[in-house]
């Protein structure tokens, strides 16, 4: 048993994959057991039925159609929110005035459950890409803003002092010290932003769209097709997990010194 723990604690790819497989397997077993007690198939369906429902979606092509709608919208919007988030974070970190005046507005906006405004956005921007785009942007941008500003402000003073001592210009201090220092912080913000973007897109699709995972979940639940609902939820979960793993790896790659 001790050996198993030692293996799982390792910082290797094999160990990481095993950890994920073990926890996934655990969830599947628990789910299967639960499905044996809860026999009402409207409430819960066992994993195998979900898998076959998913397979059917693939074969019919509706999976591809929904995936295309969701992924294009979420990825464009996510990328734009990273760019805007970093931009706003930079502005806040470089100007005391902006930080003092703009900061409260941003944190007020951040504490509003923007998701709740989804029906309003759909009324303004119509069904389809535009409303999804804006909603995802608004939920995903804040973590990037916050971590960018925090990262830029967190830079070790001795590093800046040393750069100044070597006659660095303010731009050189930014490009060789402050920005590289902030980069892992920013990536951790991006990781959170990805998770929020997925929530945003699903909610946007719930309320108004004719394609996408959110739309598929909504329409399946309206016909009490629990297997399809759970199938799409799993696909979304996988997207979230992949993003999280990728960005965590990027963070480690950018800041290996933080681990020791």
């Amino acid at each position: 048993m001790r050996k198993v723990y030692d293996f799982l604690e390792q910082d290797t790819r094999a160990a990481a994959v095993t950890r994920i497989l073990v926890s996934t397997g655990f969830v599947l077993i628990l789910w299967q057991l639960l499905a044996m007690f809860v026999t009402n198939r409207l409430l819960l369906v066992p994993p195998a039925e979900v898998a076959s429902a998913l397979w059917k979606e693939f074969q019919q092509g509706s999976m591809a159609e929904n995936a295309w709608a969701t992924v294009t919208a979420v990825v464009t919007s996510f990328l734009v929110s990273i760019a805007i988030g970093i931009g706003i974070g930079l502005a806040l970190a470089s100007s005391r005035f902006l930080s003092l005046t703009g900061g409260p507005v941003l944190s007020a906006l951040n504490s509003v459950p923007i998701i709740a405004l989804a029906p309003l956005f759909i009324a303004w921007l119509g069904l389809g890409f535009a409303s999804k785009f804006v909603l995802v942007l608004l939920v995903a941008v804040f973590p990037v803003v916050v971590t960018t500003e925090a990262g830029l402000r967190a830079t070790d003073k001795p590093l800046i002092e040393a750069a100044r001592s070597f006659n660095a210009t303010p731009l050189q201090i930014f490009s060789t010290v402050t920005f590289p220092y902030a980069l892992p912080f920013i990536v951790s913000g991006i990781r959170v932003a990805w998770a929020r973007a997925l929530v945003g897109i699903v909610v946007a699709e719930f309320f108004g769209s004719f394609a996408g995972f959110g739309f598929a979940i909504m329409s399946a639940s309206q016909t009490f097709d629990t297997a399809r609902v759970l199938g799409y939820v799993i696909v979304l979960g996988a997207m979230g997990l992949i993003g999280s793993v990728l960005f965590a790896a990027l963070e480690r790659y950018l800041a290996p010194w933080r681990l020791e």
């Binding site: 001795p158 002092e161 040393a162 001592s165 070597f166 590289p180 800041a255």
Partner: peptide
């Protein structure tokens, strides 16, 4: 040129 007391090397 200054040699600093603490770590002032760029970790990356």
């Amino acid at each position: 040129a200054m040699v600093f007391q603490q770590d002032s090397l760029l970790p990356w």
